[in-house]
């Protein structure tokens, strides 16, 4: 008892929640002109057909760009194929050419996939301002210091979801739902420290896959059931 009362220092009592993903929500994305394999096209021409998952990378990136694309490619495979979207991989490095980007598409074997578009643009600064993306040149090695960023754009050209960092398919699913204008009344903040989350909400299918937390929540009833069975079966019944 005394040991219990010996209060340890309470760490992590002011958790820092990352609220960066909340910026620019429902703001219009700059309608810039991009160049893809098929030629010049305005973003509005793309998103008015299908909502966009916009990914900003550059081909010489020695950092997060390749893992980001790899993770995105893997996660897309896990998403319900009925949902509509276009993944626009856009270079934010003015030095990148369309050929560089096409090479990148080939490396990831995404050049044949109709859902993926690789593009460059001369109006990248205008776009960056509208989405709150601030890559910073780092040193002489033509590298940028930048976030792994996915921007979800709905059919009206509004930013409806942002994902920062390498995220799982549930987060990506949430984005695909948001860009298709499906209202989900709540979402978790990016914070993977929590133990026993109740529900891994999979908005792509609109279903909750039970998390460890749900198991914890069903534990009392399960244990009671077992207890009742054990007591009941082991008791000597005096009745006839």
């Amino acid at each position: 008892m005394i040991l219990l009362l010996w209060a340890p220092k309470l760490y992590a009592l002011t958790p820092v929640y990352n609220l960066d993903e909340e910026t620019n929500i429902y703001q219009p994305v700059a309608d810039i002109r991009v160049t893809t394999e098929e030629g010049g096209i305005y973003l509005s021409e793309i998103y008015s057909g299908r909502p966009i998952i916009l990914t900003l990378v550059y081909t010489r990136c020695a950092g997060v760009c390749n893992p980001l694309l790899m993770r995105l490619k893997e996660n897309i495979e896990l998403i319900d194929p009925k949902r509509e979207f276009t993944i626009l991989v856009l270079s934010f490095d003015p030095l990148d050419t369309l050929e560089d980007m096409q090479g990148m598409a080939k490396r990831f074997t995404l050049d044949e996939d109709p859902r993926w578009e690789f593009a460059v643009s001369r109006e990248i600064d205008k776009l960056n301002r509208s989405i709150g993306f601030n890559p910073v040149r780092a040193g002489a090695k033509r590298q940028f210091d930048h976030e792994a960023l996915l921007i979800g754009i709905n059919r009206n050209g509004l930013i409806t979801k942002k994902l920062i960092g390498l995220r799982n398919e549930a987060a990506l699913g949430a984005m695909i739902v948001e860009i298709n204008d499906v209202f989900v009344p709540s979402y978790p903040l990016p914070d993977n420290k929590r133990s026993f989350s109740c529900f891994n909400y999979d908005p792509a299918t609109g279903k909750n896959s039970p998390g460890w937390g749900l198991l914890v929540l069903s534990l009392p009833a399960t244990l009671t059931l077992l207890l009742v069975l054990v007591i009941g079966i082991n008791s000597n019944h005096e009745h006839h």
């Binding site: 929640y17 209202f183 989900v184 009344p185 709540s186 979402y187 978790p188 903040l189 914070d191």
Partner: peptide
């Protein structure tokens, strides 16, 4: 609720 965002329209 900490860690979650609830959306009220």
């Amino acid at each position: 609720m900490p860690g979650y965002v609830n959306r009220l329209r």
